[in-house]
Amino acid sequence: MTSNAIDSRGAEHSASPLSRPGSSGRDASETTTDGAGEGGRSRGSATPGTTPKRRRVGTVRPLGIGIVTLWLSVIVLLPLAALTVAAFSEGWAGFWDAVTAPAAIAALWVTVLVSAIVAVVNAVTGTLIAWVLVRDDFRGKRFVNAIIDLPFALPTIVASIVLLSLYGPNSPIDVHLNATRWGLIVALLFVTLPFVVRSVQPVLIEADREVEEAAASLGASSWTTFRRVVLPTLAPAILSGTGLAFARAIGEYGSVVLIGGNIPRETQVASQYIQQQIEIDRPVNAAAVSVALLAIAFATLLVLRVVASRTQRREERDA
């Protein structure tokens, strides 16, 4: 195995920009273990003369915190607040009417359906690819490993064009996915490819192979070993990757805008519906469906976080 090509650190980093839910919790716990103790101690044990100097380093002045709060508010929080207020500007009933309008429901349904299919396919193929990259050995493995990150690096509109050049109207292999749900699925599979692979890979590298060998020596077939020993170890990572892929897929726009065809009730996804509502000057509808889409994404990430923290607790208990 070429360990440096797919060392767990590298894999984790390449996935980090988009894999969020678990990490901030982890950051928080790290902070309490090193930072707090240090800051507190230096203040407590320092002699009166050196206290002011030392305190300057370990802490952040209120000005810094004020700047950060203001920055995050103006860039992130205020726009989302304005969105939410706009969604409810005609009251709860107005919000409900906008979200349950037939075209809106249809778009949300197509989005969730297609994203769920994509997430499930990813769970299988992602695990398979991770397994091949970690446990198998062949020429060009490093190259294949590098290709996995390509969909993250490629602009989404380029992904759209790339897929159209093969599966579009002038398809050289005569496969026409343009303006079909299959087109949506292929586009979303392309952009979500790295999630499961990159979350399973490091776990598989760390996995204890002695347990597997023990199972095999006790007479378990390789399928039984996989099902009873390997899969339970990988399950949290697979679930987290699948969930992130789903969350990404429901909000995706650039990769589906050209290949999807934007046919209402057929291939129009929620993000396209929202964009259309803005274009025909129905901002309240756009805001309401946006809030619904956000709610689905947050619910997904919340479930992931709860599952992750439960797994972590179980591991700590076992350890």
Binding site: S23, S24, P79, S290, A297
Partner: peptide, 21 residues
């Protein structure tokens, strides 16, 4: 949590939010 928020928001929703603000 706010720092992580942009990863969970669809690009289209980002655009709509900015228009609303």
């Amino acid at each position: 949590a706010v720092v992580d928020l942009p990863f969970a928001v669809s690009p289209i929703v980002v655009g709509v939010s900015l228009i609303m603000l």
